[in-house]
């Protein structure tokens, strides 16, 4: 196959069309009207100020974890443990807020401490994965997966044990923090915190500059693409892998801290809300480059929020968003693989 400048965009457009096609088939199979469902998702995401701000609320943690996994992807690592790192960030942030709640410290300072604690929590959990890989020979996928379960168990134990509500412990989480410790939102009803949006945008910008414009980022790329050659070129490979885990953990921890301080105002059992895995999908979909991460993450957040309308309006399950997201990632990756295979064949047999 002869590859032109148009080949790649054509394959990607084909992937989007196929993903929509499969999702439509799923909808038809359930007997629902696909167009009505898609319209509901659209209006559920952008049909008003309230839902649109919900999209942004979901976009913030998703963009943060995406920023993080882009760093580990750059160095060639699969940080599946990102879910646990988000959870640990939330736990550490909760711990800080509980510790300083009611103290003489300025509430703003306490929130800042909670964010720093969250970053530290995520980083510790991520570096544990890195240490297991570097010193114990445990593949980061297995180590991360294992630590995800540990993080979930730790979270549940805290909610039902030491940090339980007075009286009866409940799946609804710990006692909400004092209102003074909530990250300020644009108004009383909204959960949209400008500071969190600012952090997320700054985060992806930092990752973009880090990977594209710094010596550090170039060395990360070199390690990711060929660790052996990178080592011979004088780059201390395992230290760079550890550093990328730490950076990714910081971003994951930030996402956890945002969920605790701005969205739920307490620790809940499913605090990571699957944003970690969704962030990995966004990272794969944007082909591991930071430039497109913000809009694609926004699209995914819109799908998530918009699909909340499905059970209400159409008696459909809201997991339809997941079907669309999953098939989209699959077809984009599949298209990429097929394109490379076809063009390689064209070269091998002249």
């Amino acid at each position: 196959m002869h590859e032109t400048r148009l080949t790649k965009p054509l394959f990607q457009a084909g992937a989007v069309a196929l993903a929509l096609g499969i999702t439509t088939l799923v909808l038809l199979a359930t007997g629902a009207s696909p167009f009505a469902a898609y319209r509901s998702i659209l209006s559920g995401a952008f049909g008003g100020w309230g839902v649109a701000s919900d999209v942004v609320v979901a976009w913030v943690p998703l963009l943060l974890v995406t920023s993080g996994v882009l760093v580990t992807f750059t160095v060639g690592l699969w940080n599946i443990g990102i879910e646990g790192q988000v959870t640990l960030g939330a736990i550490f942030a909760t711990w800080a807020l509980r510790s300083f709640q009611g103290s003489a410290l300025d509430p703003g300072l306490v929130i800042a401490i909670a964010f720093v604690a969250g970053m530290a929590g995520g980083a510790v959990w991520a570096m544990l994965v890195g240490a297991l890989k570097t010193f114990g020979g445990v593949n980061e996928i297995f180590g991360g997966l294992g630590l995800n379960y540990v993080a979930t168990a730790l979270n549940i134990w805290l909610i039902f044990g030491p940090w339980k509500r007075p009286g009866v412990a409940s799946m609804s989480g710990t006692v909400p923090f004092d209102k003074s410790l909530w990250l300020p939102t644009i108004n009383e009803q909204s959960r949209l915190a400008p500071a969190a949006v600012g952090i997320a945008i700054a985060g992806i910008a930092i990752v973009f500059v880090l990977v594209q414009g710094t010596y550090f980022g170039l060395k990360l790329k070199a390690v990711g693409k060929n660790p052996k050659a990178a080592y011979l070129l004088g780059i201390p490979t395992w230290q760079y892998m550890m550093a990328s885990f730490a950076i990714c953990g910081v971003f994951a921890g930030l996402a956890g801290a945002v969920q605790v301080t701005a969205v739920y105002h307490r620790l809940i059992p499913s605090i990571s809300s699957g944003y970690g895995f969704l962030g990995l999908m966004v990272g794969m979909l944007v082909n591991y480059s930071a430039a497109l991460a913000a809009p694609v993450a926004l699209f995914f957040a819109a799908l998530n929020v918009g699909s909340i309308q499905l059970p209400i309006v159409h008696k459909l399950d809201s997991s339809l968003a997941g079907v669309l997201q999953g098939t989209l990632v699959l077809f984009v990756l599949l298209g990429d693989g097929l394109r490379k295979r076809l063009s390689a064949k064209g070269k091998a047999r002249p």
Binding site: L218, K221, A222, K225, N226, K228, A229, A230, L232, L233
Partner: peptide
Amino acid sequence: EEGLVPGL
């Protein structure tokens, strides 16, 4: 495989 980094 060992001396250069393909992709860079």
